[in-house]
Amino acid sequence: MELYNGHLPVEEILNRWLSEEMDSNFGAFIPFVGIIREEGGIEALSFDIYEPILQKWFNQWQTKANDMGAKLRMAHSIGDVPVHTSSYISAVMSPKRKVALRLINDFVEDFKANAPIWKYDVIDGKRVYAEDRSTPMDGAGILA
């Protein structure tokens, strides 16, 4: 798992991941690249990350993937990420394509629902919590 301040160096990351895995006898390599869309007048998105829990969440997923003979990688930005650059890359690798095709979907969806990362719109330099697009984590409301 790799965290970066600011937008991700997408090409460097993908090329490195690929070159490190070409000889691992994986038949399928599926990256997911998240790109900041220009909408709602934002100039960037900004992210807070709570790393200790994110690392645990990722390690659990890596164990699950390894049990299926697959492997996961992930990179995310901290702080401001301008539109048309990337804040998030994950990738799955497996010997056969079906595991990888199912895993990339499940991994990205659970990431969206349970990774401890908070998103803000950056408008005129001001950070605005994107609550309308945020999802209560599993177990939310326990102290209500």
């Binding site: 998240g34 992210f47 709570y50 829990i53 995310h76 804040s87 998030y88 990205v108 990431f111 969206k112 629902a113 349970n114 990774a115 401890p116 990362i117 908070w118 998103k119 919590y129 994107a130 609550e131 697009r133 945020s134 999802t135 209560p136 984590m137 939310a140 102290l143």
Partner: peptide, 10 residues
């Protein structure tokens, strides 16, 4: 004890 608001990674 950490309080975690609704999330939105990616």
């Amino acid at each position: 004890v950490s309080i975690l608001p609704p999330v939105c990674g990616g």
